[in-house]
Simulated assay, not measured.
Amino acid sequence: MTDDHAATPQPGPQSAPQPGPQSAPEFAPPLDTDPAPAPAPTAEEQALAARAAEEQAAHRTRRRKAAVRWGCAVLVFALAGTGTALAVTAPERTDIPGLATAGDGRYTFPPLALPPLPSGKAAPNLKDKSKDKSAAVHLADLRYLLLPAPKEAGGSVNPPVFPAPTVPTGSASASPSASGTPSGTPSGAPSGTSSASASPSASGTASAAPEGAAPANWVSCDALLGDLQNPARMRTLLRQNVCRAATVREWTASDGTSTRIRLMRFGTSAEAWDTFSRTRSEIQLKAAPDARTATSSADGELPDGVEVTRKESRETAGKDVPTTRLAFVSASDVVAVITMTNPRGVPAAAFRQVVDLQSDLLA
Rank of each mutant, 00 (worst) to 15 (best):
L225D: 02
M234T: 02
W251H: 03
Q353N: 06
D227I: 05
S297I: 09
T295V: 12
D320H: 12
T324P: 03
P303V: 01
T259R: 11
T309K: 10
Q353W: 15
R352C: 12
S277G: 04
V321S: 10
V321N: 10
A348D: 12
A349M: 05
T279L: 09
R235K: 13
T236C: 00
S281E: 14
A298G: 08
A317N: 02
P347R: 07
Q284W: 14
A287P: 05
D304R: 09
R233H: 10
D320R: 13
T341S: 14
P289Y: 05
A317H: 05
C243Y: 09
A298V: 09
A287V: 10
N241Y: 15
A350M: 11
E250G: 13
E315T: 08
R260C: 03
V248R: 15
A291K: 07
I261G: 06
T316N: 03
Q284H: 13
T268C: 10
T339F: 10
A336H: 02
T247F: 09
T293R: 15
G267R: 07
Q358M: 01
D360K: 15
R249H: 05
Q284K: 15
D274Y: 11
L285W: 10
D360A: 07
V334Y: 11
E307V: 12
D290Y: 07
S313F: 08
K286Y: 09
V346L: 10
A232D: 06
D320E: 12
E315C: 04
T341Q: 15
A232R: 09
W273E: 11
G267L: 05
E315M: 11
I261A: 04
E250L: 10
V308S: 02
Q353Y: 14
V337R: 08
T323N: 04
T341K: 13
D227W: 14
V355S: 04
P303S: 06
A272R: 07
L238T: 09
K319P: 00
L263R: 05
R280A: 06
R235V: 05
V306N: 04
G305A: 00
L263P: 02
P347M: 02
E301Y: 13
E315Y: 02
L238V: 02
T295Q: 14
R314S: 12
V337W: 13
L228E: 00
R239K: 14
F328N: 05
V337M: 09
R344H: 15
M264Q: 14
T324K: 02
A348G: 06
S258W: 12
V346T: 06
G300A: 13
R249F: 01
D274N: 12
R280D: 00
R233Q: 15
E315Q: 03
G345Q: 07
L263H: 10
A270G: 01
R265E: 08
A336Q: 08
T279M: 11
A272L: 00
I283A: 06
T324G: 03
T323C: 04
D360P: 02
T309P: 07
R314T: 11
D274E: 14
S281F: 12
E307D: 15
N241R: 14
P303F: 06
T279V: 07
D255R: 07
S281D: 11
L302H: 08
S258D: 04
P322H: 10
L263Y: 04
V334P: 08
G305C: 00
V354W: 05
R265N: 00
T323Y: 03
T293N: 12
A223L: 01
P303I: 03
L326S: 00
E271G: 11
L326A: 03
